[in-house]
Amino acid sequence: MSTLRRNAIVESIGWFIVLITFFPIFFSNGGAEEFIKNETKRNITANIFLFGYCIHFLILWLTHRKKKLVKIVFDERDKETQRIANNIAFIFTLLYVFLLSIVLYDSFFKSEYIPVGYMWFVGYSTIAMTSFLSAFIILITDLKNS
């Protein structure tokens, strides 16, 4: 198994855990309005994202360490796979942000205001979704091309 694929699997799993943990925490007991009042919820969320980034930096460190032991870790084909996957993930991220904005607009159209707590949701979920999608699409592209 290539380093690229192994990294993509680990990162996909890591960010998927972040996503499925963040959503229930945000929406449980009052949703957006409660999220800005409840410091515990915000701290837990920050730690979940810290976990996601720890995995990301752990992978970077392990890959860097492997470079000292193995001659070639990434090559031109891996870079091409990453490039294709990042382009696709970029489009999906744009779509996600657009659809999320439309859903929020539609949901709060009548009340004429959006609870400010949803800004946390937009910010956090975009980070997690983009990171997950990038890794997952790298994995799919690599599997397709192998």
Binding site: S2, T3, K71, I72, V73, F74, D75, E76, R77, D78, N145, S146
Partner: peptide
């Protein structure tokens, strides 16, 4: 040649 085994296989 400075690439991975997977690339040679592909």
């Amino acid at each position: 040649v400075g690439c991975t085994r997977q690339t040679i296989n592909a």
